[in-house]
Amino acid sequence: MTLTRTLPQAPAARVPAPARRRRRSGIGALFVTPYMLYTLAVFAIPLGYTLWISFHRFYFTAPGAHAPSPWVGLSNYRDVLTDPVVGKSFLNIAIFLVINVPLTVGLSLVLATALNAKLPFRSFFRAAFYLPYITASVALVAVWQFLFGSDGLVNHALGGLAPDPSWLVNTHLAMPSIALFVTWKQLGFFVMLYLGALQNVGNDLYEAASVDGAGAVRKFWSITVPGVRPATTLVAVYAIVTGANLFSEPYLLTGGGGPDNSSTSPVLLMYQKGIEQGHPDFAAALGVVLIVLVLAVTLITRKLTERGD
């Protein structure tokens, strides 16, 4: 197989007839053209446009009308960075991360470890865990709003222990409720991710440790946890990206960002400031700040994981 694959292919690929190469080259470029046009229209142009808007005073005008957009330098960025609600939204993301990351890592590691064996109903469990991940946020938010509402099942079950004001309208609990919802919705994805990582760890390490007399707990910390580190890094990156993007949850679950902006997220703020209140320049600058942040996080983690390997 390898022989037939490498032998005839190598010369053909290295010294193609010039005319043929041009033909292949043309057709390849042609095949990727629709995709490149799409990325130009949906990523490159909007990216450039948001940068441009962020350095100008920009208004929405009535269709057909034209308003001047004067250059204002960094003034939109100054507005963004000094806005208390922006600060609040970043603080909310910090709360989100503090709850979401450890909970996701802990629960998905436990569930993946439990799943990582020959068991009855294994595919049923896998399906059950994954179901929320593929279901529309709007549908799940509706159920959670009902479950965690003032007169909802959770409060009825808690009886006297139910928080007042209730979960989603409580300044201290609105953001933690969102973090809990997102953890629940995405957990199945991370369980599968850890399950894949666990299967790569290999049984011989565990057997060797057993021979050396290591207990289950010791094995978990010394073999399992380091073995799944790339998956754990991915949880952290996803959590940061998800946090930066939260919209449906604060908008729908906690009714437009919770009491006193207690669950406002940066993207919700972009919508409220940019489109509802008509300050697209402010929203554009906020968008640029977020993109830089997300790219920086992705690059840093990529560097860290490369060094780790």
Partner: peptide, 13 residues
Amino acid sequence: TIPFQLLTLPLYV
């Protein structure tokens, strides 16, 4: 790597 949500404002415009 760039979440689409962060580009909603310019895309909307």
